[in-house]
C-alpha cells in the first residue's frame, strides 16, 4: 500500500492546518506551589471548578490551598468554607498566614451544601469557596462550574478518590497521594496536556 504517507512529510509541506487549543490566560491565581504552577496550563488555579480527590482525610489537602487562601484573605477578600468535615483550627490556619476575619464558615446539611456553594459562587463576592459535598453528580458539578465561571471565583470541591473513575466537568482535577510521600497527580486540566509525572508537595508542619 503506497497510500501510507509519513506524517512528518505532510507537516513539512504545510498542507495541513493544525488546530490548537485556545490559549489559556496566564495565571492570575498562583497556587503558591511553584512546582504545581509550572505544570498547570493557567500557571495556577483556573477561575473555575477544581476538584481535589483524596485517599483519606488529613493527607495535605488543605496545605494545597492554604497558600492561596492566605494570599486572598490578606488582600481582604472573602473565603467561604462550606460544610467542612472537621472544625477549622484557628491557630493552625493562622500559622499558614490566613486572616480568619475574612473566612466565613457555613454550616449546611448534606442536601444544602451544593446550594450554598452555588449561592456563594454566583454572588461574586467570594474570592474562593471550599466545599465538601457528600453527594455530587455530574449535573451538580456542572452547575458549580457555571456558577464559578459567572462569579469569577475559585471553587474547590474535596471528594474521595473513588470518584476518580467518574467523568467530571471540573476544569482541574487533582489527585492527592499520601504514600510513600505526598504527591499531586494532575488528572485533568482544561487548556493543556495532562503532565505525566506527579508533583511532590513538601509538607511543612507549619
Amino acid at each position: 500500500m503506497s497510500a501510507v504517507v509519513a506524517l512528518t512529510g505532510l507537516f513539512d509541506a504545510q498542507q495541513i492546518w493544525r488546530g490548537r487549543a485556545a490559549p489559556v490566560p496566564a495565571g492570575e491565581q498562583p497556587t503558591g506551589w511553584a512546582a504545581l504552577d509550572a505544570v498547570l496550563p493557567a500557571g495556577g488555579w483556573p477561575a473555575a471548578l477544581s476538584e481535589i480527590l483524596l485517599p483519606a482525610d488529613g493527607v495535605g489537602e488543605l496545605q494545597l490551598v492554604l497558600p492561596t487562601l492566605a494570599r486572598l484573605t490578606q488582600g481582604a477578600r472573602t473565603v467561604v468554607v462550606v460544610a467542612p468535615p472537621y472544625v477549622p483550627c484557628v491557630a493552625g490556619w493562622r500559622q499558614h498566614g490566613v486572616d480568619m476575619r475574612h473566612v466565613e464558615i457555613v454550616h449546611a446539611d448534606s442536601q444544602d451544601v451544593l446550594w450554598a456553594m452555588e449561592q456563594c459562587l454566583r454572588s461574586a463576592s467570594c474570592a474562593a469557596v471550599l466545599a465538601w459535598p457528600q453527594q455530587a453528580d455530574d449535573h451538580a458539578l456542572r452547575r458549580l462550574q457555571v456558577a464559578a465561571d459567572s462569579g469569577h471565583a475559585l471553587a474547590f470541591v474535596f471528594r474521595a478518590r473513588r470518584h476518580l473513575t467518574q467523568a467530571s466537568p471540573a476544569a482541574l482535577r487533582l489527585e492527592l497521594e499520601a504514600l510513600p510521600q505526598t504527591r499531586v497527580w494532575v488528572r485533568k486540566c482544561r487548556g493543556g496536556a495532562v503532565p505525566a509525572q506527579p508533583v511532590a508537595l513538601g509538607r511543612a508542619l507549619h
Binding site: 472544625v87 493562622r94 464558615i105 457555613v106
Partner: peptide, 13 residues
C-alpha cells in the same frame, strides 16, 4: 434565611 440563623459564622481565638 435558608440554613438557619447560626449557620454562617466566623472563628476567632
Amino acid at each position: 434565611a435558608r440554613l438557619g440563623d447560626q449557620a454562617v459564622y466566623q472563628l476567632g481565638s
